[in-house]
């Protein structure tokens, strides 16, 4: 992904992570991820012309349709937090779930599953 034009971590100067992760069958944002999202929100609050899409994903376990809904719940958690933190509704161009259909790691083990349970911010 192109790192140009995306927000940077205020302390490290590195591009902010655009992925947050979740526990199994959960859509609760973790405190560490909330801190990252706060920085995204701060960036988006100053760059009102920028918008993002939020994608939600799950690991392969469980049923596909349930996972589609769970991925949506995860993406919504991110969108909810961003809007609560001052990002305009219009800046969130899309919230979409791919369920378990687009894993980043196709393995069938705890590591792969943990990586796949995620929501991704896509700057547009």
């Amino acid at each position: 992904m192109d790192d140009e034009g995306v927000p940077y971590d205020e302390d490290t100067g590195r591009p902010l992570s655009r992925v947050v992760h979740f526990d199994f069958d959960k859509a609760v944002l973790r405190p560490a991820d909330i801190r990252v999202l706060e920085q995204h929100a701060a960036f988006l609050s100053t760059a009102r012309d920028r918008s993002i899409a939020v994608e939600g994903h799950c690991d392969e376990r469980g049923t596909r349709d349930y996972n589609l809904a769970l991925g949506e719940k995860r993406a919504n958690a991110v969108a909810e937090f961003l809007t609560a933190a001052g990002v305009r509704r219009s800046q969130i161009a899309d919230v979409v779930s791919y369920g378990e259909e687009q894993p980043v790691d196709v393995g069938s083990n705890e590591d792969a599953w943990a990586k796949n349970r995620r929501a991704v911010l896509v700057y547009q």
Binding site: E10, D11, L29, P31, I34, R35, E38, F81, A84, A85
Partner: peptide, 13 residues
């Protein structure tokens, strides 16, 4: 290292 979560973040959590 990381800055502490804001009040909003805590409340959201």
């Amino acid at each position: 290292a990381a800055p502490s979560t804001s009040q909003l973040g805590q409340l959201f959590y």
